[in-house]
């Protein structure tokens, strides 16, 4: 006579039922990662987790060593992408609408904190990316074989600043246009290519100057002689599409190279 199985608690019966359905098993090809075999499988069979190796040196996950700043920067990039996408529903990048759309967003959307999270997240991202570079430098992690990845990181740092810079203009308030005016005035003084830069007089056909306020580096940056409609559209497109796209590609390279160059750095 077979002994009857003791009755299982409800939750565990439900769990067993769910994890044995065809739908569940089509998504997760292995059991809970409670044994070593499944811990390998969970990392190998998941597109997001497989950025990681299966095993990692203990010092590489100690917060005192990594500060988690690279991870937080990536996390903040995702937060900015998500909140930015929601903001794009409410925002039109034209001089006539931009400011009023931001006011509407603040006043008409109940309990909305997306713009707040987007703005504070942007400030935080600039800081975390600096601290990430700081940590990588202090642990000498740019040394061979990671020289190239350090370079990718420097470009990503510059792109982070440019992302923040282009986003600065979009609210179209006094802070926005004057900060961008001050920032972009520098381009006027670009050597050779700015109309107030040294060497720009050299580019002339007879008496006709080739580099003037309507053709210099600043004009190219702003799409006009001052921060206006052209600049707003340019900065919007760069902020929402251009720079995130390039940064996304470079991030893929950055993470991939971390793995290929031997994982997170440690003493050789």
């Amino acid at each position: 006579m077979a002994t009857a199985k003791p009755p299982q608690p409800f939750l565990s019966r439900t769990w067993d039922y769910i994890t044995e359905t065809q739908i569940w098993r089509s998504i997760f090809r292995h059991g809970m990662p409670a044994n070593n075999r499944n811990r390998v499988l969970v990392v190998m069979s998941n597109v997001f987790l497989h950025l990681h190796p299966v095993k990692i040196r203990k010092s590489g996950i100690r917060l005192k060593f990594t500060w988690c700043m690279g991870g937080l920067t990536f996390f903040l990039f995702l937060v900015e992408t998500f909140t930015g996408l929601l903001l794009m529903f409410y925002y039109r990048p034209t001089v006539a609408y931009a400011y009023m759309d931001i006011i509407d967003l603040a006043e008409q959307v109940p309990l909305g904190i997306m713009r707040e999270i987007h703005r504070w997240g942007a400030h935080a991202m600039v800081i975390t990316v600096w601290l990430h570079m700081f940590r990588v430098f202090m642990t000498g992690s740019y040394k061979p074989p990671r020289e190239f990845n350090w370079n990718v990181g420097v470009i990503l740092l510059v792109l982070t600043l440019l992302l923040s810079f282009t986003g600065y203009l979009l609210p179209w308030d006094q802070l926005a246009i004057w900060a961008i005016t001050v920032g972009s005035n520098m381009a006027r003084a670009t050597p050779v290519l700015g109309h107030e830069g040294p060497g720009s007089q050299l580019l002339a056909l007879g008496d006709v100057k080739m580099v003037h306020a309507g053709s210099d580096a600043r004009f190219a940056l702003l799409g006009g002689r001052f921060v206006g409609e052209g600049a707003l559209l340019r900065f919007y497109v760069l902020h929402c599409v251009g720079i995130p796209l390039v940064a996304g590609i470079l991030m893929a390279v950055h993470f991939w190279r971390v793995r290929k160059d031997g994982g997170i750095s440690g003493p050789l």
Partner: peptide
């Protein structure tokens, strides 16, 4: 510290 550990769950 140089010993290796599992990414899941530790990392």
């Amino acid at each position: 510290e140089a010993e290796k550990t599992w990414v899941w769950p530790d990392l």
